[in-house]
């Protein structure tokens, strides 16, 4: 009897596969005429899909890491790993983030798992901020984008790190609890996962990754939709014309970084194209603010953390980046 049931599942799976591949081949004829749609809608769709295609591999990796944390790392292990001393913990979380190559959308599910496993919220934030901002790929692409000039890449990295430390410190003073939403605060399993044997744990981890993917994907898609909308219908030139002077232009570049929601590995090239319009400080605002906070990852954070926490965190990040950059402007 059991054999029959197993076969039934396999047959169902194969049927789905056949359906999908039939759909793929048939699709050539299903594709609608491009004349039916306005070109702006088609451009919108292209940008939307390209953001998704770019982000999906990183989200999948993030989802797997979240699954591994859930089932293979115990709370005690994590607690031992994080220093008791708060200053050390802040430094440590930012350093680990800096060493960890991630992008801003893949890192949200990882932070969520870490925090629900008892990592203090400020350490999670430190990791969240430096993960996408500082890593070898980002530094290299910044170096290349600014005409093989190391200065901008170094400034981005060092200033970004200092700002991240500052924000993490503030968060550690303001927020005590873990700030996860009720539904996200689920160590849903009512028992310790360490009691399971290895193969069952592996299976659970994979199932968990699938569910996590569906959880994250809808918010990623909403974020990508909004970012694609901004990219298609709002002119960067119109934003640039809003004002001059360091204060205005830094604010504009930060706003642009937020709305465009570019991956931190590629944003340096866009930033570099504004060099002839704005001072270096404003470009740094674009390069540092974008990886820390953007439209796409705000939506994802809102799904995981409490509303109030996300709003306050956004405020802290915005004010810190803006304030510190303007503070160091005379010395750059």
């Amino acid at each position: 009897m059991k054999r029959v049931k197993q076969n039934l599942a396999e047959v169902a799976g194969i049927l789905v596969l056949v359906f999908v591949f039939y759909f793929m081949i048939l699709n050539e004829r299903l594709m609608m005429e491009s004349l039916l749609f306005p070109t702006s809608l088609l451009a919108f769709n292209t940008i939307f899909l390209s953001i998704l295609i770019e982000a999906l591999p990183f989200v999948l990796v993030g989802v797997f890491i979240a699954g591994i944390i859930q089932f293979f790392v115990s709370e005690e292990q994590l607690k031992r790993f994080i220093p008791r001393n708060r200053v050390m913990a802040i430094l440590m979380s930012c350093l680990v983030g800096a060493l960890f190559p991630a992008c801003e959308c893949g890192i949200v599910p990882i932070v969520r798992r870490l925090v629900s496993k008892g990592v203090p919220i400020f350490a999670g934030v430190g990791f969240l901020l430096t993960g996408p901002l500082i890593n070898p790929i980002v530094i290299f692409s910044t170096y290349v984008a600014f005409g093989q000039d190391l200065k901008m890449a170094l400034q981005r990295m060092i200033l970004g790190f200092i700002i991240a430390l500052f924000i993490t410190a503030i968060v550690s003073l303001i927020f005590k609890r873990n700030q996860l939403k009720k539904s996200a605060n689920s160590n849903q399993l009512g028992y310790s996962s360490s009691s399971l044997n290895l193969s069952l744990r592996l299976k659970a981890m994979l199932f968990h990754s699938v569910d996590e993917f569906f959880d994250v994907a809808k918010f990623l898609i909403i974020g990508a939709l909004l970012a694609a909308f901004v990219q298609t219908f709002i002119s960067t030139q119109a934003m640039v014309d809003l004002g001059e002077g360091v204060v205005y232009s830094t604010a504009i570049m930060m706003g642009l970084a937020y709305l465009l929601s570019l991956c931190s590995e590629a944003d340096a090239f866009i930033g570099a194209s504004f060099r002839h319009l704005f001072p270096e400080t404003s470009i740094l605002g674009f390069l540092i603010y974008g990886p820390m906070l953007d439209l796409k990852n705000t939506i994802m954070m809102l799904a995981v953390f409490k509303f109030r926490f996300v709003i306050v965190l956004m405020l802290i990040i915005t004010v810190s980046v803006f304030g510190i950059l303007l503070g160091v402007h005379p010395f750059l």
Binding site: L42, N45, T236
Partner: peptide, 19 residues
């Protein structure tokens, strides 16, 4: 949208909105 809408390449109209 991926399966049913045709894809378009960015052109002059999109260039206006960009750097």
């Amino acid at each position: 949208t991926g399966f049913f809408l045709p894809y378009s390449e960015l052109g002059a109209a999109e260039a206006m909105n960009r750097a």
